[in-house]
């Protein structure tokens, strides 16, 4: 969906759902996700629909992901770090009806 205008930026290596990905130093996890080719970050709790980052300024809370073991972090507000493990959030197990 997005491409990098520069290919000479300094990079760090992160994993997204276990897949190794290069990210530019200083960018947000959401930016790295958008550049990775698959922008999906989570499934909604209500219907399980896929979502991707929407506002990238901390407002919409659509980019909630598990980052280094911590659930529901706003990927647009977290800067990438070498070795960071990012996971897409699955739909939470629903309550028994």
């Amino acid at each position: 969906m997005f491409r990098r205008l520069h290919d000479n930026a300094a990079t760090v290596t992160i994993t997204i759902d276990g897949v190794t990905t290069k990210a530019a130093v200083g960018e947000s996890v959401a930016a790295a996700l958008l550049a990775s080719g698959d922008p999906r970050c989570r499934q909604t709790p209500v219907s399980g629909a896929p979502r991707a980052p929407y506002c990238l300024m901390g407002v919409c809370f659509d980019c909630l992901m598990e980052i280094d073991g911590e659930a529901s972090r706003q990927a647009c507000m977290v800067t990438v770090r070498e070795g960071m493990a990012v996971k897409r959030s699955p739909r939470p197990a629903p309550m028994t009806p």
């Binding site: 709790p45 529901s72 939470p92 197990a93 629903p94 309550m95 028994t96």
Partner: peptide
């Protein structure tokens, strides 16, 4: 809290 996976009834 936010919606969490089912853990208590």
């Amino acid at each position: 809290s936010e919606r969490m996976p089912h853990f208590v009834d």
